[in-house]
Amino acid sequence: MRKALIYLALSAGAVVFAYPFVWMVLATFKPEAEIGNLSLLPSVWTLESYRLVFETIPIVRAFLNSLVVAAVVIASVLVFGSATAYSLAKLRWKGRDTVFNLMLFTMMVPFMVMLIPLYTMIVEFGWTDSLIGLIVPFMMNATAVLILRQSFVTLPTDILDAARIDGCGEWRILFTIVWPLSIPALVTAGIIVFIGNWNEVLWPLMVIRNEDWMTMPQMVALFTVGGGAQARLGPQLAAAVLLALPIAAVYLVFQRHFIASLASTGVKG
């Protein structure tokens, strides 16, 4: 009886969180006039909404832009971020603790302080309307470094010393010994950076005006706000579904990692 009630409540929750998505996906296959009614299934299935999206905006190009930005940012954060994390966790040098405290300080400064000065700087560098402006400011990430450092600290120093005696340089130790032992932390850092980067809208809206360099969330947002969708509901929802698709797919494959990774940022915060 008690168990049944628990399942009932949990299922009600599942409906509340999943049903809107189900409704949205099915609505994109409805004729425009049907989107306003309550029925879940279309009376006639049509791809018209998607056709209009692909005809009006270069959404594939935006997807590729997003992909390039995310890939470069993640690669950079993992390579240089883990070098920093390794240096902070396993090497001893003058000023190390200062750098670590500085990093913690950067995480406490609300982003709106930096928003406008950073933007004006990007303008002066001539990086607006280019992927560089979306990539370079985010090639380092303090949260990722913190996560990696916390994992690296637990590695036994003996194996590192052994490698040093064999004449291994620190970079080689990082990639051939530390990395293979720290896959979970690397995955966590990668996922956190990926979600943040993939879903970022404000920064692209500031830096990119040229359609050729827009990211996917930015383009979908402007399609809805800027009138590209001409107030038609079907294409707006279809664009939203296309935007949700990549991350939902990655999420369903790696869901356990996603949940654990994101939770770890909060638990430490």
């Binding site: 998505f21 879903n199 969330p217 939203a240 935007l243 939902a248 999420y251």
Partner: peptide, 10 residues
């Protein structure tokens, strides 16, 4: 995990 843009449109 889904973008705020998707949720806003929905």
């Amino acid at each position: 995990v889904v973008s705020g843009v998707v949720v806003a449109i929905l």
